[in-house]
């Protein structure tokens, strides 16, 4: 009785194809069918932002999107941020500013800010805080995350 489809998408630059139940959301598809477990699921109702990934350039909540809707798309996840084993500037700044503790919200935070800093390369602190106002972190109090984003913006500008 379950209805399945074959989904093909580009995940962090690599072509992927897998079959899935039509009701499976993109987060579960990435995690379980494509074994890309870097994307996390914190609420499954679109509030915590842990599942944030970038689909065709736009940040989306992967728990609110069906895998079938991502068929043919280009998907970026936390696994795609580092290049050749070198952390991205944002990843490195998260570590430097202690922007993560348990690390569970971190993939969603990174992807949200990755997209945001492309759009707003020179944000104010208030803008950074607004940008992540849909991502819950229970550990850090947000300050290190905000500092990391501002630091990256400043050093990209100087570069």
């Amino acid at each position: 009785m379950s209805d399945t489809r074959t989904i093909s998408l580009t995940l962090n630059g690599a072509a992927k194809t897998a079959e899935t139940d039509v009701r499976v959301n993109l987060a579960d598809f990435l995690r379980h069918s494509l074994e890309a477990t870097g994307t996390h699921v914190g609420c499954e109702h679109g509030v915590c932002g842990a599942c944030t990934v970038i689909v065709d350039g736009q940040p989306v909540r992967a728990c609110l999107m069906l895998a079938v809707q991502a068929d043919g798309s280009t998907v970026e996840t936390v696994e795609g941020l580092a290049t050749d084993g070198a952390l991205s500037d944002l990843q490195a700044a998260f570590s430097r500013h202690h922007g993560l503790q348990c690390g569970f919200c971190t993939p969603g935070m990174l992807m949200t800010l990755h997209a945001f800093l492309k759009e707003v390369p020179n944000p104010s602190e208030t803008e950074v805080r607004e940008a992540i106002s849909g991502n819950i972190c229970r550990c850090t109090g947000y300050q290190g995350i905000v500092a990391a984003a501002l630091d990256v913006a400043a050093s990209r500008k100087g570069a």
Partner: peptide
């Protein structure tokens, strides 16, 4: 951090 910011954390799920 290096594991956790690259999606290589290993949580129960």
């Amino acid at each position: 951090d290096a594991r956790l910011v690259t999606g290589r954390g290993r949580y129960v799920d």
